[in-house]
Write a protein that binds this DNA or RNA. Structure first.
Length: 297
DNA sequence: TACCCGTGGTG
DNA sequence: TCACCAAGGGT
């Protein structure tokens, strides 16, 4: 059961005041980033830490300052520029989003949440984040940081559920400040609080602006009880093989022979399955002569 | 819903 | 050392 705060607004001022003082100076938060910069950052930050995104973000925006600039290049160039950020399908989707923005929205990142949501690679979180951070709109922005902050401060649990629940969305809407600019500030502030203070492993409650109102802390910071949180195995999986295969193609200038791909993984069945998967995903293009390259279309 | 999808830092 | 973790989305 989720406990409703008696007066939701009491959290707003301390969290936003804390954000005013402690917010990181990130490039996508600067005014010159614009909606496109915000969108690029949101794609890159999906499951990838800020520190690793920073250099790639700068290169990306310098090379493709507008959606149309990216849309004008082959998707394989986006995959190559993605580097080692991980989950390279995001690069493909960002390229697809840029193409859709160019074709359907006159080259401007749409302001409307529903239109954002219709873009490839843009889900509930990213649509709300772009609408809120880039356009100052009032949306519940529920990422892993915000979910953890609310789980602790309001629900009294160490961790949120594995999958986002309807109760969490309702709570987020309940806590959202009424005024649009305040709501946008709140969204960024709660995310930052989760990223810097209310961290997953060892939260710094001594530095938390709402520690005095935290339900989890008040309960004695009880350990997580429910089902174990989903772990991520990696070694020996298809994902690892796909990563090795794509790394070869990223670093190659032109098409690579089958033999170069065969060299990265011993086991032929899994290797073939991984390569087929990359082709099916549009990350790799097989050529008639038996070589492979990053996609030109 | 549960699972798939990369990569690297860290306690 | 190694399991956990990092501004999710698609199916």
């Amino acid at each position: 059961m989720t406990a409703m705060p008696q007066t939701p607004t009491v959290l707003h001022a301390p969290v936003i005041d804390w954000f005013d003082e402690h917010a990181r100076d990130l490039p996508w938060r600067r005014p010159e980033a614009g909606p496109w910069g915000v969108m690029v950052s949101e794609f890159m930050l999906q499951q990838t830490p800020v520190s690793r995104v920073l250099p790639v973000y700068e290169q990306w925006l310098a090379r493709w300052p507008r959606p149309a600039d990216l849309a004008a290049e082959p998707p394989g160039e986006a995959v190559r520029a993605w580097g080692r950020l991980g989950y390279p399908r995001r690069a493909l989707r960002l390229h697809g989003a840029a193409a859709a923005i160019t074709e359907r929205h006159g080259g401007e990142v749409p302001r409307d949440h529903a239109k954002l949501l219709a873009l490839p690679g843009v889900g509930e979180y990213t649509a709300a984040a772009v609408a809120s951070f880039a356009y100052g709109q009032r949306h519940a922005v529920l990422d892993t940081n915000v979910r953890r902050v609310f789980a602790r401060a309001v629900s009294g649990a160490q961790y949120p559920p594995n999958a986002t629940t309807a109760a969490e969305r309702k709570l987020a809407r309940t806590l959202l400040p009424e005024e649009e600019p305040v709501a946008a500030r709140w969204a960024a502030a709660t995310m930052e609080l989760g990223a810097l203070v209310c961290t997953a492993r060892t939260p710094s409650c001594a530095r938390c602006p709402i520690a005095g109102r935290c339900a989890w802390k008040a309960a004695g910071s009880p350990a997580h009880d429910g089902p174990p949180r989903r772990g991520q195995t990696y070694a020996g999986t298809d994902r690892q093989v796909r990563g090795k295969l794509l790394a070869v193609l990223r670093e190659a200038v032109g098409p690579v022979p089958q033999s170069a791909l065969d060299a990265v993984w011993e086991e032929p069945v899994q290797r073939a399955r991984a390569l087929d998967g990359l082709v099916a995903d549009g990350l790799v293009e097989p050529l008639a002569d038996g070589t492979y390259r990053l996609p030109l279309t």
